[in-house]
């Protein structure tokens, strides 16, 4: 019984969202606002239960680890973002967050730059590696703006543009595939779970 009712509610809200394809309307706006409200309503108690209780309340009040009070106080300074005069206090927790970002830089350099460079410097033994080599070099030359893209240099950078266009095309193709997949998921729900036409 519960499943039938929840399927009806989900189907109604899905159709409300789909109604935007015809034109903007109150049903769409209602479903959109409901989504935001429900998401927040769901997240707040979950965060309280899974973050505040185990990482703030329990260590301080039950385990008596009073050192936790310091990071808890620093974190609570974020609240001052909402005041005009004291908003500068929020910069202190941000500083700690930035420190964590800095911690990731060496490992990010390793995985996103060094390993990528290493695999672009292989012997040109196959067509794939040759294509990767030509693509990497021509695109890097395209982004070298200290020299005008004219003459032979301009033709080489044009090859880089072609490589980028193919890359953008692949990305766009995958985007279309993803959007259609989402539509398939919803239609599978409407026809299967709701109307019971697919078994």
């Amino acid at each position: 019984m519960f499943e039938t009712i929840s399927n009806f509610v989900a189907a109604f809200l899905t159709l409300c969202i789909f109604s935007f394809l015809y034109k903007d309307n109150p049903f769409y706006k209602f479903a959109e606002a409901l989504l935001v409200g429900v998401s927040m309503g769901y997240a707040i108690p979950l965060l309280f239960e899974n973050v505040f209780m185990p990482y703030v309340y329990t260590p301080i009040f039950l385990d008596h680890k009073f050192i936790i009070i310091i990071p808890a106080l620093i974190g609570s300074l974020y609240i001052f973002r909402f005041t005009k005069n004291l908003s500068w206090l929020a910069r202190y927790p941000i500083t700690f967050s930035m420190g964590i970002v800095g911690m990731g830089i060496p490992m990010s350099l390793h995985s996103s730059v060094l390993v990528q460079m290493r695999s672009a410097m292989l012997p040109l033994a196959s067509i794939n590696i040759t294509l990767i080599f030509i693509g990497t070099v021509t695109i890097l030359l395209y982004f070298f703006f200290s020299k005008a893209h004219k003459g032979i240099y301009g033709k080489v950078t044009n090859v880089g543009i072609w490589f980028m266009m193919i890359g953008f095309g692949a990305s766009f193709g995958y985007t279309v595939m993803a959007r259609i997949s989402l539509l398939i998921g919803r239609i599978q729900f409407l026809l299967g779970d709701w109307l019971g036409l697919i078994k």
């Binding site: 995985s111 390993v115 990528q116 695999s119 990305s171 995958y174 993803a178």
Partner: peptide, 17 residues
Amino acid sequence: ITAVMVADNYPYLQTGQ
């Protein structure tokens, strides 16, 4: 991953990461 993100993740697949 979703299809949208595939192109972004291909370099990591190609490098064996």
